[in-house]
Simulated assay, not measured.
Amino acid sequence: MNKQQALSLVKPHLTESRYLHTERVTETALELAARFHVVPEKAMLASVFHDYCKYRPLDEMRRIIEMTATLPNDLLDYHHELWHGPVASVLVETELGIKSSDVRAAIFWHTTGHKQMTDLEKVVYLADYIEPGRDIPGIEVVRRKATYDLDAAVFLACKNSISFLVSKSRKVYPDALNLYNDLVDRVK
């Protein structure tokens, strides 16, 4: 499937602003993939479909999490914003025929990350964070790091995300903390 075919499949599932975000994430992911030697086709597919389930009804996503053995039920204990990636990792296979476990894992982990992420997973995670439409405190530092150090950029994005959640007294998904802990020593 080429990029235009993929975008045409995802477009009906997104708002106009989310579709434009998806286009920017995809372009950013392709730039990062070229820079850090990640298979561009996989980066393209994962980034196009990273928000495939963003607007699915919460009760549908809850049911899919409960009924799918490969999805951790503890997701239900955290904010529903975390649900769309794991649910999409299942539905892109069943609804769209995307079988690549690498692509599906990058979709799954694009919101929280986890320890020992693959470079493809890091590229999608980071592209979603630094795409040009984002205006987040500290993002320019992350964007600069992303020009030469994938791990350092992912670390800063993770650190900023965790700091934001803590500042709002919100729960932090354990895998996000695992990502932080995994990278903290590597980037020093």
Rank of each mutant, 00 (worst) to 15 (best):
M1N: 05
N2F: 13
N2C: 12
N2A: 10
Q4F: 12
A6C: 15
P12N: 08
T15H: 13
E16A: 10
R18S: 11
R18D: 12
Y19A: 06
H21F: 08
L30E: 12
L32Y: 08
A34K: 12
R35Y: 04
F36D: 03
V38S: 03
V39D: 14
V39G: 06
E41R: 14
S47L: 12
H50S: 07
Y55F: 15
Y55G: 02
R56I: 12
R56T: 13
R56M: 15
P57D: 13
L58H: 09
L58P: 05
D59W: 06
M61D: 09
M61C: 07
M61F: 07
R62N: 09
R62P: 02
I64R: 06
I65G: 06
E66V: 03
E66A: 07
M67E: 14
M67N: 14
A69Y: 02
L71D: 10
P72R: 14
D74H: 15
L75F: 11
L75M: 10
D77I: 03
Y78Q: 05
H79V: 07
H79Y: 07
L82S: 08
G85I: 00
V87P: 13
A88L: 08
L91K: 11
V92S: 08
V92H: 05
T94W: 03
T94A: 04
T94G: 04
S101F: 11
S101M: 12
S101W: 14
V103E: 08
V103C: 06
V103T: 07
R104Y: 12
I107G: 03
I107H: 09
F108W: 11
W109T: 00
W109V: 00
W109D: 00
H110M: 02
T111A: 09
G113M: 05
H114K: 15
Q116F: 06
T118S: 14
D119Q: 05
D119S: 09
L120P: 11
L120F: 13
L120A: 02
E121P: 01
E121K: 01
V124T: 05
V124H: 05
L126K: 04
D128S: 04
D128W: 01
Y129W: 09
I130R: 01
E131F: 03
G133P: 11
G133E: 11
R134C: 10
R134K: 14
D135Q: 11
G138C: 02
I139E: 05
I139N: 01
R143H: 07
R144Q: 15
K145Y: 15
T147D: 15
D151G: 02
A153P: 05
A153G: 01
A153Y: 00
V154L: 01
V154A: 02
V154T: 04
C158I: 01
K159S: 08
S161R: 06
S163L: 15
F164V: 10
S169Y: 08
S169P: 04
K171F: 08
K171M: 12
V172H: 00
Y173F: 13
Y173G: 00
D175R: 00
A176L: 03
L177S: 04
N181G: 01
N181Y: 01
N181A: 06
D182T: 01
L183K: 00
V184Q: 06
V184K: 08
D185Y: 02
D185L: 06
V187F: 07
K188Y: 03
K188F: 03
